[in-house]
């Protein structure tokens, strides 16, 4: 019994294991065993899976993965495919608009909620609830609201504006904006909450100081508060971007990629070629392009965030 003083006082009779340095690997063994699922996930699925997919994107795998390397052939074919180019264009339009509108609307709403208003939590609950819903639900609701026969267009026509046309889900030219409306409806609540948390994190004395100095509120926001909230903006940017690249469920539910190929997106291209078109090589090449797009945003951010200061 270790806590028994009599035993302890005898001294010198310690088991040899205590005197010799134990093997490094065996120290805190239980903790290491408990971390095995994490290690496997990180190494096998995340790292291994990514490397595997990137490697096989250089092969001519069709129905099954085959290690027959064909260089950049898959990528050449990918960029020669009209559907892929449209997907990329769509993603660029959707991404840019969604980024700008999310940040602006999210910040403005957060600033409005930060005015010590009444019913703040009611407003916040309303603005955030779409975020709790599945993209499938969001897509289907907006499919219904934007239905040209029964939805917004028909109602405004019924009000006397006979020539009014707003049928984004039937008109290939503006179809992607139909998706954007739904996407913004679901996603801005999250950005608003992040911004609100950022605004609340700003020292209240900044506001006192700017009031004493007689700076108008809007100027304080633009020249003082927004620069101070840079980390929040960057986090929001990274979140929105990684969400944009993953855009899939919403399109499947709302338009199925149509009309024609007007709302196709890369993630859907990957899925269709991998599991529908039995053309794995195209799927791998397309998903590698997606990875590249994320890396362009995430890596500079990570270097900015974690590179300067070691350990947070």
């Amino acid at each position: 019994m270790p806590s028994d003083p009599v035993h302890a006082r005898q001294g010198g009779t310690a088991p040899p294991s205590a005197a010799r340095r134990p093997r490094r690997l065996l120290r805190n063994l239980t903790a290491k065993i408990a971390a095995i699922p994490m290690v496997l996930t990180a190494m096998v699925v995340f790292l291994g899976g990514t490397v595997w997919t990137v490697t096989y994107s250089f092969t001519n795998s069709k129905l099954l993965p085959r290690a027959e390397f064909v260089g950049l052939a898959q990528y050449e074919r990918l960029w020669a495919t009209r559907r892929w180019v449209v997907s990329i264009e769509n993603l660029a339009i959707y991404g840019l608009c969604s980024l700008v509108f999310s940040l602006v609307i999210g910040f403005v709403l957060a600033a409005l909620l930060d005015q010590k208003i009444r019913y703040e939590s009611a407003f916040r609950t309303i603005l955030l609830y779409p975020f709790a819903l599945s993209f499938i639900v969001t897509g289907l609701v907006w499919q219904w609201i934007l239905n040209p026969e029964f939805g917004v267009q028909s109602i405004i026509r019924a009000m006397g504006f006979e020539g009014f046309a707003f049928d984004p889900l039937y008109n290939p030219d503006i179809a992607i904006f139909g998706i954007l409306i739904a996407g913004l409806w679901q996603g801005t609540g999250l950005i608003m909450v992040l911004m609100l948390a950022g605004l609340r994190g700003i020292d209240g004395e900044i506001w006192k100081a700017s009031r004493v100095d007689g700076i108008p509120a809007w100027k304080t926001y633009i020249f003082i508060i927004v620069p101070m909230m840079r980390p929040v903006f960057i986090t929001a940017l990274v979140l929105i971007t990684s969400g944009i690249v993953k855009l899939y469920d919403l399109v499947v539910a709302q338009t199925g990629g149509g009309p024609g190929i007007a709302t196709e997106v890369p993630a859907k291209y990957v899925y269709d070629y991998m599991f529908g078109g039995q053309n794995l090589g195209q799927g791998f090449a397309a998903s590698t392009m997606m990875l590249l797009a994320v890396a362009i945003v995430v890596i500079p951010w990570a270097m900015l965030e974690f590179g300067g200061k070691r350990r947070g």
Partner: peptide, 24 residues
């Protein structure tokens, strides 16, 4: 804390690599 080098004795017993609860 795991030490890098050296030895610790408590009541004459070498406890350098003992668990905290076993050191008395």
């Amino acid at each position: 804390l795991d030490i890098t080098d050296g030895q610790i004795f408590i009541q004459g017993r070498n406890v350098t690599w003992e668990e905290p609860s076993d050191r008395g």
